[in-house]
Design a protein around this nucleic acid. Structure first.
Length: 492
RNA sequence: GGCCUCAUCGUCUAACGGUUAGGACAGCGGGUUCUCAAUCCGUCAAUCGGAGUUCGAUUCUCCGUGAGGUCACCA
């Protein structure tokens, strides 16, 4: 499909500062960013703060932090400026006034003289008649001169069915009911979204607007405004909605959509989040799923974006995250692990850098996010690395056979392990030293008590890995304390 | 209610109008394993319904049905 190749691509992400950004907003930002970066274009961050009542203190910083975490960098924005500064709508009021005035001069905008109550009555009447309320049916014949104390409305010139092309959806239409004399400037002096974003996109030279599909029905209004302004409109790409788990509703803050930064706190890696979100409503056209940023940029195509909504699936996100964790460098894996190990474990007697270093690959293999590490800690699957386990005699003897006792087996294990030199203390050598005997008497009756003696847990990495981690001395120490418990008559 | 949009395994998705409808996640089974994890192999599972066009429809058209969105001095 033709895509403005003659013009430099300019896209933008334009959140309103009403709190955090959730994955839906981020995906919109991501697609806009990908498109701009793919064509060496410009990506703009703009803050749409024209609703002063809904504004939440600190949102802008929070949004910026979210985008930075994910590596979605912008070329122009409130924090870094740019040739179309400022990038905060409340600081661009003069610009909106200027365009409003040209519309008034052309007799394409007029003051709305009605009180709130009068409008309410119109609306109630329409409601009663079961038809949509349309302000233009009540358009005043001689509107007063606009002095800024009343809302300013666009005067729709031609009531018609609208038709336009969308980069994703193709031909879209909307009935004449979608077209109304909408408000350009509110009585508080701020522009509406409908007006402000169009003026800003125009002034900032935005070529492609990525937006969620809730804007389809207000598009006729935008088209009417472009027409009134006598300007060419940018390309529009309508993204499918992201649905909440369960699948029936669009993901939204009200339904518990999370702040993206919550995912950071759970140990989701930014690359994994980007990768996952890119695949939510788009795919490269082949079987690739785990893709680098440059692969994404290479393959991304707005025209290939999905039409229907997609559920946000945390399980698949976790899977992708696990893939990325396994690809990290050893140093990064260790730092990652350290970040999520709770403090009470860090203060355990044998918590050392050396041990942390040793267990890193063992733990990394078992997790897909930081949440899993925290879960391991809660379940006691972490502390045995750093302290001697507390053992139960019954569990120790769980796999005991009639012909040979667990005591004897542990003694033989100790005996065999003692023969290994410290230099040769590796999991391979340890396995070698025990395997033949264990196989001859039944591996379970030897390896189970050994592993349990080392970990104190019913589930853990295998005994050879554990023995290597604890060293010769530590391993034999643990095996001996298991023996003591077995031989302790008071512990029957 | 009006207007609009969407519709393939449980989920994310692939399939110039011609495929045994493919892949991934999840699930299940197995190999390897004392357990867990990892890994390998295997397996379950879908074209919303009905007409039409066509030699042939997941694909095009229409009608249903279902879901979502929107009808603010919110964005």
């Amino acid at each position: 499909m033709e895509t403005n190749n003659h013009k430099k691509v300019v896209t933008r992400f334009a959140p309103s500062p009403t709190g955090f950004v959730h994955v839906g907003g981020i995906r919109t930002a991501l697609f806009a960013w990908l498109w701009a970066r793919k064509y060496n274009g410009t990506f703009i961050l703009r803050i749409e703060d024209t609703d002063k009542e809904r504004e939440v203190e600190g949102s802008i910083e929070h949004i910026i932090e979210s985008l930075k975490w994910l590596g979605l960098d912008w070329d122009e924005g409130p924090d870094i400026g740019g040739k179309h500064a400022p990038y905060i709508q409340s600081q661009r009021l003069d610009s909106y006034k200027k365009y409003a005035q040209t519309l008034i001069d052309k007799n394409l905008a007029y003051a709305d003289p009605y009180t709130e109550k009068e409008i309410e009555e119109f609306r109630a009447k329409a409601d009663l008649e079961k038809r949509p309320f349309l302000y233009r049916e009540h358009r005043p014949e001689n509107p007063p001169v606009w002095d800024g104390s009343m809302p300013l409305r666009l005067k729709i010139q031609e009531v018609k069915t609208s038709e336009w092309n969308d980069l994703v959806r193709g031909k879209l239409t909307a009935g004449p009911e979608a077209l109304d004399d909408f408000i350009l400037i509110k009585s508080d002096g701020y522009p509406t979204y409908n007006f402000a974003h169009i003026i800003d996109d125009l002034e900032m030279g935005v070529t492609h607007i990525m937006r969620a599909d809730e804007f389809i029905s207000s598009t006729p209004k935008f088209l009417a405004l472009y027409e009134a302004l006598g300007v060419e409109r940018p390309e529009m790409a309508t993204l499918p909605p992201i649905m909440a788990p369960g699948g029936k509703k669009k993901l939204g803050k009200r339904d518990g959509a999370k702040d993206v930064l919550d995912y950071r706190n759970e140990g989701i890696l930014p690359e994994a989040m980007i990768n996952f979100l890119a695949l939510l409503g788009w795919n490269p056209g082949d079987d690739r799923e785990v893709m680098t940023e440059s692969q994404l940029l290479e393959a991304f195509d707005v025209t290939k974006i999905q039409h229907s909504g997609a559920q946000f699936n945390e399980e698949k996100l976790a899977w992708i995250n696990g893939e990325y964790i396994k690809k990290m460098s050893y140093e990064d894996q260790e730092a990652y692990l350290l970040k999520f190990i709770p403090n009470d474990i860090k203060s355990l007697p044998h918590f050392t850098n050396d041990m942390l270093h040793k267990i890193t690959p063992v733990i990394i293999e078992r997790i897909s996010s930081g949440l899993d590490i925290e879960m391991m800690a809660v379940n006691g699957d972490l502390d045995y690395y750093f302290k001697y386990p507390k053992l139960s005699k019954d569990i120790l003897k769980k796999e005991q056979k009639d012909n040979i006792t667990t005591n004897e087996n542990i003694k033989i294990v100790i005996e065999n392990l003692s023969k290994i030199t410290v230099d040769n203390w590796t999991k391979e050598k340890i396995k070698e030293a025990l395997w033949e005997y264990a196989t001859s008497v039944g591996r379970g009756s030897v390896l189970w008590p050994m592993r349990y003696a080392l970990s104190g847990c019913q589930k853990s990495p295998d005994p050879f890995i554990l023995a290597e981690l604890f060293g010769k001395e530590g391993t034999i120490l643990r095996l001996n304390s298991a023996l003591e418990i077995l031989e302790d008559k008071n512990n029957e």
